[in-house]
Design a protein around this nucleic acid. Structure first.
Length: 783
RNA sequence: UGGCCCGUGGUCUAAUGGCAGGACACCGGUCUUUGGAACCGGCGGUGGUGGUUCGAAUCCACCCGGGCCAACCA
């Protein structure tokens, strides 16, 4: 059916464009119903999150609803814990299904009834062959399948068998219900797909009520149809399944407007493991602590890591939705997390790897407090806390360097550094033990520099964080990194192989970290920025009691270490720019004709004769002759057009490019006009009644809605405007309306000529002669 | 190898025959009591070859490359 682009929404993803078109055309009476259909046999991961954001997001944006429906049609592996898990994770992500919670297993009765309808129509049969026999009978991608010995059972026989299957009379594996479609279909899924199989297994919701269970392709479309879903959005690997989706609904008797399936590219993320098949071995081997390990890309893991749901939603928005299979840079996720946390996280000071500082000129036993703001000047949020200060402090080991590299802006022997919110200190002495190990640093503070004052005329290299030794809290800090050393290849699905790629440093535990005491008063789910190091929060499992345990959510962007260690820049895998493969640059004798079309011609002498006549007598190119003799249908169409307007090259041009393009999935025989109509149109263009461009608009209309070219020209107002003075005044207006573009054009941006011609075409509704318009524009613009 | 889908800077994505744009990354600068943030600037792209058109990322053909399909999984 034709899909008129009512009002394309530039910028929106293709799914939203389709929904927008359907909403505007009233196809579903303005209803929008989507659904998120997980199978409850695992936990939600970030790939599901993309789908959740899409389905719930689309519903929300178009005033519709999104159902949460469990696709629990296979009793094996499914359970209640996973059902609860998905609900928790979806809610956490910030979406709500309202009262629309459904279970495919609740529809088993109705699905059974639909199967009976198919059997009664002779469109499904009970096959009693073995699994292997069925597999063999299906053929291969290059070899057609062959009918099995049960394919022609009578309707009554099938009904009887199917009923007895349902009643539990047979062992698992002895019989299946199959659709009777086409064993020779190029689409393997259409070769009599299995609809029901026998499984004497306990279903987590239905118990032993059923011993036959529907297959995905049969069940899923019915679930959508039962729920009046309008847009059934799934991932690309289901593209081949769409034909079967439509077949089932059409044959069971669902009429338009009914649900339709649309496919988008699933999320793939660098360093992430996104399939159950690959996560389970990691969990079972104890490589990760469970489904909620913060290194995992499960929503539970991401959540435990401390990532806020807003960040995940922002990430999904950033990556978009399209059909091109792609791998997203992990840096985008990190950006989204920092973006959200920068605005939300209070800043506090913590020292991950402490080294002691003794202030030799600060009175022993004295304490003072600094009032320090939680947020920097550029984050519009209020709040301060008190930070205690004394003569013994900790600073970060990496903030002191005896032998500093050029550009080092922290503490060095004899040098000064500012303590954040406090004093400027100078390193006077490096104290070592007998083994030469650094023990502590003796420093002096400048009491004039309190809180940032008294620094005029003095250049202080840098500012570092610190905590007072006597007041500091000791914490364990878990530093997470990528679980894998390299981006896992999609084909590395062997368990051992995955294990061997694990990054041994994916979890680094820092035991003796020191944190400022103010945090003890905060809500346990506070996400902090530990200044200069990263974003952290208390581990919700191990960090909620007396023990302080922090997870690093994400580091801060670090332009220092990046520039200091330029050597380990990430080299993208695969081909780099310079070694981009040249795609067969020289192929002098390209095949002019297509092999399969040539074979078709060989079987049809009339087509073969026409092919030769087209290329030899009519002077068409081999390519044109080839395309025009694809089938008698095309060739006859061409002949009819020639009968009206005998200019083979011109007619062939229209038919092999424009008509083919506009036709899309439709066939010539579906059109309401034949070759004669095309011939008339081409003749009109040749007679200068309308421009070629306008002719194409007319053709599009003829193909979509039918109609006579003569009438359409008048109706659409496309009578050609090539009267120069009329065009000139249009051009004057356009140039006056785009003064900046005129200047840009005259400054050398010659590509703008297309935009000017386009504007002329637009304002004349496509009737202007673009050739003349261009010529006049060139003259006016001084080209 | 049969069918279906997909190729836009390093990465993700827009442009629906008419100005190839945005985001991330990267590089440089300004600012800064976080080597953070913010702000300014820069680098860099339509897989290839033909064709249709006044005009092609977009339509047509062929080629190259990638993905999916031969479960009684979803």
């Amino acid at each position: 059916m034709s899909r008129e682009v009512a009002n394309p929404k530039p910028g929106a993803d293709f799914i939203r464009q389709i929904v927008a078109e359907d909403t505007e055309s009233g196809r579903y009476g303005g209803r929008v119903v989507t659904r998120f259909p997980p199978e409850p046999n695992g936990f939600m991961h970030i790939g599901h999150a993309k789908s959740v954001c899409l389905n719930f997001g689309v519903a929300k944006e178009f005033g519709g609803v999104c159902h949460l429906r469990y696709d629990d049609t296979n009793p094996e592996g499914e359970n209640e814990a996973f059902v609860v898990g998905f609900q928790e994770d979806i809610r956490w992500l910030g979406f709500d299904w309202g009262e629309h919670l459904y279970f495919a297993s609740d529809y088993f009765e109705r699905m059974y009834d639909c199967a009976v309808i198919l059997i009664e129509k002779g469109l499904a049969y009970v096959d009693s062959e073995s699994e292997e026999e069925i597999r063999e009978g299906r053929g291969t991608v290059t070899k057609a399948g062959t009918p099995g010995r049960y394919r022609d059972r009578t309707v009554d026989e099938n009904l009887d068998f199917f009923r007895r299957m349902q009643e539990g009379e047979f062992e698992g594996g002895t019989h299946v219900l199959r659709a009777k479609i086409d064993l020779e279909s190029a689409n393997m899924l259409m070769r009599d797909p299995v609809l029901y199989r026998i499984r004497h297994a306990r279903h987590y919701r239905q118990g032993d009520e059923w011993c036959i269970y529907p297959m995905y392709d049969y069940a899923h479309c019915l679930e959508d149809a039962f729920e009046d879903v309008t847009h059934s959005i799934c991932t690309l690997e289901f593209e081949n399944n769409r034909e079967l989706y439509d077949w089932v609904l059409d044959n069971v008797g669902f009429e338009e407007p009914r649900t339709h399936q649309y496919e988008f590219a699933r999320l793939d993320l660098e360093y992430a493991v996104l399939s159950k098949r690959r996560i389970i071995p990691l969990v079972e081997a104890g490589i990760v602590s469970g489904w909620d390990d913060p290194r995992l890309s499960t929503v539970r893991g991401i959540r435990r890591r401390g990532v806020p749901p807003e960040a995940l939603r922002l990430f999904c928005k950033m990556i978009g939705v399209a059909k091109a299979q792609s791998v997203v840079d992990i840096g985008k996720l990190e950006y989204a997390i920092r973006e959200v946390l920068n605005q939300a996280a209070p800043r506090v000071m913590a020292v991950l790897d402490p080294i002691k500082i003794v202030l030799t000129n600060y009175p022993d036993g004295q304490t003072e407090e600094f009032e320090a703001p939680y947020f920097p000047h550029d984050v519009p949020r209020e709040g301060t806390r008190m930070v205690p200060f004394s003569n013994e402090l900790f600073i970060e080991r990496t903030d002191f360097e005896e032998d500093p590299p050029p550009g080092f802006r922290r503490l060095v022997p004899g040098g000064e550094v500012r303590l954040r919110h406090a004093y400027v200190i100078r390193c006077e002495k490096v104290v070592r033990d007998k083994a030469g190990q650094l023990v502590e640093l003796h420093c002096t503070h400048d009491s004039e520099s309190r809180g940032g004052k008294g620094t005029a005329g003095r250049k202080v290299k840098g500012t570092i964080q610190w905590v007072s030794a006597a007041h500091a809290l000791t914490a364990e800090i878990r530093m997470y990194d990528h679980l894998f050393l390299e981006i896992p290849e999609s084909d590395s699905d062997e368990d051992e192989e995955i294990v061997s790629r694990i990054n041994p440093d994916s979890l680094r535990i820092l035991e003796g970290a020191k944190v400022e005491p103010s945090i003890s008063d905060d809500s346990p789910d506070t996400r902090y920025q530990f200044e200069r190091t990263g974003y952290f929060w208390k581990d919700p499992v191990d960090g909620v009691g007396e023990e302080l345990v922090f997870n690093r959510i994400v580091s801060l962007k670090d332009s220092w270490s990046r520039s200091a260690a330029k050597s380990d820049v990430k080299v993208p895998k695969g081909k780099s720019g310079s070694e981009k493969v040249m795609n067969n640059p020289r192929r002098p004798e390209k095949p002019a004709v297509n092999e399969s079309r040539e074979a078709a011609r060989a079987a049809d002498p009339q087509l073969m004769a026409r092919f030769e006549r087209y290329s030899d007598d009519l002077g068409l190119t081999l390519e044109q002759a080839d395309l025009l003799t694809t089938s008698p249908e095309v060739s006859d169409f061409f002949e009819k057009a020639l009968a009206v307007y005998d200019e083979p090259a011109e007619v062939a041009g229209w038919l092999t490019t424009d008509v083919r393009g506009l036709l899309g999935a439709r066939r010539l025989k579906d059109l309401t006009f034949d070759g004669e109509g095309l011939g008339q149109l081409v003749a009109l263009v040749a007679a200068d009644r309308l421009s070629r461009r306008a002719g194409k608009d007319v053709l599009a209309r003829m193909i979509d809605e039918g109609g006579d070219p003569h009438q359409l020209i008048v109706e659409m107002g496309l009578e050609k405007v090539s009267d120069r003075s009329a065009l000139e005044s249009v051009i004057e207006e356009i140039l006056a309306a785009w003064p900046e573009k005129v200047i840009e054009y005259q400054a050398g941006k010659s590509g703008l000529i297309g935009m000017f011609v386009g504007e002329v075409m637009k304002s004349t509704n496509g009737a202007a002669d673009p050739k003349v318009a261009r010529e006049l524009l060139l003259k006016k613009l001084g080209g």
